[in-house]
């Protein structure tokens, strides 16, 4: 059975009429890396909140359907029980930093302290997590002295250190430099291979195509389409609905319109684009 089961999920925030999510059905296998794409307001963050239990435990409002992970229903768990298995990073890292700690090291240790992990183990796990996201040199800095992208890495690390079974990331690389963003995708890919289930809302389609197992495209609170990254990201349906895709895909689409691109499929990566455009030269 799938590790995550979202069944007939419809949800509206308090005092709103239009549901933010409508009739979402989604199954995710253990160790799968699923990317959520869609325009702003399509429901990506809300779906992240629902998977992480913040909907409905923190954001009230009207919920139908259910979210199940690791055989448990979110509606029948408390938020603190749920978050032992499920970790969420917020879109804005500033919302996540505790404000209670003076250094990055302490900030990352905070969650483990809260659940009573022994001191020696905390030290080891924090060191491991700092190495995983390559921020060892920030360990002694104040979280508030960091740039946006660095704070984003700290926020991600403070969740990874908890070793969640399901990792939910809401645009985790939005403020990162390009190489840093790619490294996060690559690190997440590795975690998924080791068995962590990952859902990531993102716009960076070049790295989604390379690292994710599946893409779920949301539009106006509904799933528009889902499938293998290549199939979704090169589809006419996505194009017609104004989704952003990589420059490789859109340049090839335009070349095809002008009769230059002769290959049957459109490219999602530099290698494929080089091969297809190389044939034109």
């Amino acid at each position: 059975m799938a590790f995550v089961n979202v069944r007939n999920l419809t949800y509206a925030y308090p005092l709103t009429k239009q549901p933010a999510l409508q009739d979402i059905n989604l199954q995710i296998e253990e160790g799968e890396f699923v990317a959520l794409i869609g325009a702003n307001g399509a429901g990506k963050s809300t779906l992240c909140y629902a998977l992480a239990g913040f909907v409905p435990h923190f954001f009230k409002g009207e919920l139908q359907g259910e979210v199940e992970a690791d055989g448990k229903l979110s509606s029948q768990s408390t938020l603190s029980e749920w978050t032992l298995n499920v970790g969420l990073t917020f879109q804005n890292p500033f919302n996540q930093i505790s404000g209670a700690k003076y250094t990055v090291f302490e900030e990352i240790a905070f969650g483990l302290e809260n659940i009573g992990v022994p001191r020696e183990e905390i030290k080891v796990r924090v060191e491991e997590a700092l190495a995983l996201t390559d921020i060892r040199e920030l360990a002694r800095r104040s979280p508030y002295s960091l740039s946006g992208g660095q704070q984003q890495r700290v926020a991600l690390t403070s969740i990874l250190v908890m070793r969640p079974k399901l990792l939910v990331l809401d645009e985790p690389t939005s403020q990162m430099d390009p190489v840093g963003a790619k490294e996060v995708f690559s690190a997440v890919r590795k975690l998924a291979q080791e068995g962590m289930t990952v859902v990531m809302a993102e716009h960076k389609t070049e790295w989604i195509a390379r690292f994710a197992d599946r893409v779920v495209a949301l539009k106006e609170g509904r799933i528009l389409m889902q499938g293998a990254p290549r199939e979704v990201l090169t589809s006419d349906l996505l194009f017609e609905n104004g989704f952003g895709v990589s420059r490789y895909t859109s340049a090839a689409r335009e070349a095809r319109r002008r009769g230059l691109w002769t290959k049957k499929s459109l490219p999602v990566s530099l290698d494929e684009a080089a091969e297809g455009f190389g044939a034109i030269r």
Binding site: A39, Q91, G148, E171, S174, H203, G244
Partner: peptide
Amino acid sequence: EPTTGQDAANV
């Protein structure tokens, strides 16, 4: 960072 977290239409 004008385009951070913005979709294609807003960019």
